[in-house]
Amino acid sequence: MKADNAVQPTENEQVRDVDSEAAAWAARLDARPGEPMPDLDDWLARDPRRSGALLRAQAILDALGGEGTETGEPAGQSRDTILSIAMSLSSARRWRMASSGALATIAAAVALFFSLDDAGQVYETQTGEIKQIALADGSAMSIDARSRLEVDYDSSARRIRMENGRVIFRAAKADPRPFVVEVGAVTITDIGTEFQVFDDPASDAIEVLVTEGVVEVATGSERLRMTAGQRLKVSRSGVQTVHLKPELLPTRDMLRTTAWREGRLELDGETLSEAVAQLNRTNQLQIVIADPALGSKELFGTFQTSDPRGFAQAIAVSLDTSITERGGVIVIGS
């Protein structure tokens, strides 16, 4: 074993020396299993980092020599079968693709508007468009793709009529007028807070999520208060079959649910179908799932909402399926 270098080595050299020594110890431990090695204890004691290096070297040796010893199956055969399903895209390349230009795309997609007069102003976003709106009173809206809403401020109220889509509202607290969002038969009155309203086109439900403060939701004859972390699904028509009862969302899930604002799609067990529906809202390049069995697969991780191609490629690799792209449509599982 080499002695510690007297000359100040670079970090890289330090790491390599430790690795090299750890490789020697791993080989020796493998040569003489069970033998006491006081020299090794000394070596480990002199630098806390060496225990990690030794563990890694031993695991590397296990990976090199441990295979097949337990199962006893003819090694060649089984390994070749697995190797023939080689990954088409290295993980490194995939992530480079996912991140390259993603920031630029988001920057281009997220336009910042300042509106001075908010009487009867209509905001509409197309597929692939996210808008950040600063309203005259200091309130703000993040509007997801495929949304439409009308801002109608007058002396008595700050009124917003939402026709469809998903919006995060941050109401300025200083203004004495109530901040009211109307969607279908549902009215959400803000009491100084931030909340998200999602009018899901795929269902009759309207989802309200309070990320900060308190709101009051009224529909039909029912009325209730929601506080930060609560999520509520109400019928768009205002006809409610059960009592309104909000669920409490862990902070992590709350952040995930509003991650679209930052151009991120965060998945924690959502299905491929759900993820694709989200991406298709945000992108011109549409994704189609050809194999219905794939649609129910659960996914984990973070993706750029502006990069459906990178998403599809990651899915193809992880679900071991193929993708084709033609005419502005990506087909998964063709």
């Binding site: 295979e67 930052e262 993706f303 992880s318």
Partner: peptide
Amino acid sequence: TTDPFVIPFGSEIEAEVGARRELQMVDDV
């Protein structure tokens, strides 16, 4: 954007992809 640091799969797929990658690497070495 947190993406460079995310392992984008569930544990099963993750282990499977990892195992393939390791086999390839071990084989090469």
